[in-house]
């Protein structure tokens, strides 16, 4: 083998180092660009009316997105109510009973598939089974779509967190004559509570920014959310509708809503990541 010029090798090495540093900087620059835009354009729309008033017709001053904020909270809350218990149950079964069995492997594989399913497909699925059959869009259909997206995330994080609990704790509880269900819910859950909580929060953060599954389930509405059986206002679909509208004041409201969504989703994500990181040390 011919010896190569060390100068050239060093030069190539240096340029790759610079390139990789530049790529990392590029990533951070894009993050700053996106977040900076959202803050600059959104901050102007955030005021008292934004949180308290219904949207005004285009051209009229004032107006806010109070109905959409309330609707998003309401749909997300319903989704948590449906998705989290089922997800936790699945996580418990995987960690405590299923373990390495064939069925448990199938469930893990299924939840990976579900996690990788595009959220718009979940929207289509819920539309066909709930909206097309009942004949109307509804907040509860939107909540179910979000719950389906949360379910595999909650199940897998719950499993991971429960598996981390030392078996000695389980055995100690069982040796005292505590029944299995009490040992799991009282002892194992307690030991894993921070992990379970952060996992659930991450899942909530993920779904609260979702738009595609709500487009044809919850739809949108210019009114206050009242019952679960009618189209329900929500922030993300409102952003989509207002951004596509030709009115400047609606677009400004869309930026305000984007800022609100970005702050809450990223805030929750960063907070939970930090908690997890401190715990893992």
């Amino acid at each position: 083998m011919k010896p190569r010029n060390p100068q050239n090798r060093k030069l190539v090495d240096l340029s790759i180092r610079l390139l990789s540093g530049a790529a990392a900087l590029f990533g951070i620059a894009m993050l700053t660009w996106i977040l900076g835009t959202v803050i600059l354009k959104g901050a102007g729309s955030i005021n008292w009316e934004f949180f308290t008033e219904l949207p005004a017709p285009p051209g009229l001053p004032g107006g806010g997105l109070a109905n959409a904020i309330l609707g998003t909270l309401y749909i997300t809350f319903l989704a948590v109510l449906i998705g989290v218990p089922i997800g936790l149950a699945a996580g418990i079964w995987l960690a405590e009973f299923g373990k390495d069995s064939k069925l448990a492997e199938a469930v893990r594989f299924g939840s990976n598939l579900l996690m990788g399913t595009p959220s718009i497909i979940i929207g289509v699925f819920v539309f066909v089974i709930l909206v097309a059959t009942t004949g109307h869009f509804s907040g509860v259909a939107g909540a179910i779509a979000l719950a389906i997206i949360m379910l595999p995330v909650v199940a897998r994080t719950a499993e991971d967190m429960l598996v981390l609990v030392p078996s000695a704790l389980r055995e100690a509880a069982l040796a005292l004559g505590v029944p299995r269900w009490k040992a799991t819910l009282g002892v194992v859950f307690c030991a894993a509570k921070t992990g379970l909580l952060t996992g659930t929060l991450l899942a909530i953060a993920r779904v609260s920014g979702e738009t595609a599954p709500l487009l044809f389930t919850a739809l949108n509405s210019p009114y206050w959310p009242s019952t679960v059986n009618e189209p329900t206002a929500n922030l993300t679909v409102t952003i989509y509708n207002y951004a596509m509208s030709p009115y400047d004041d609606w677009q400004a409201l869309a930026w305000g809503a984007s800022l609100l969504i970005a702050v809450s989703v990223l805030g929750t994500t960063v907070l939970t990541r930090t908690i997890l990181w401190y715990r893992s040390r």
């Binding site: 993050l31 996106i34 977040l35 959202v38 920014g209 979702e210 738009t211 595609a212 993300t236 952003i239 989509y240 951004a243 869309a254 930026w255 984007s258 969504i261 970005a262 989703v265 990223l266």
Partner: peptide, 8 residues
């Protein structure tokens, strides 16, 4: 970052 923010 939610997909809709990328969209905006």
């Amino acid at each position: 970052i939610p997909s809709i923010i990328y969209g905006m």
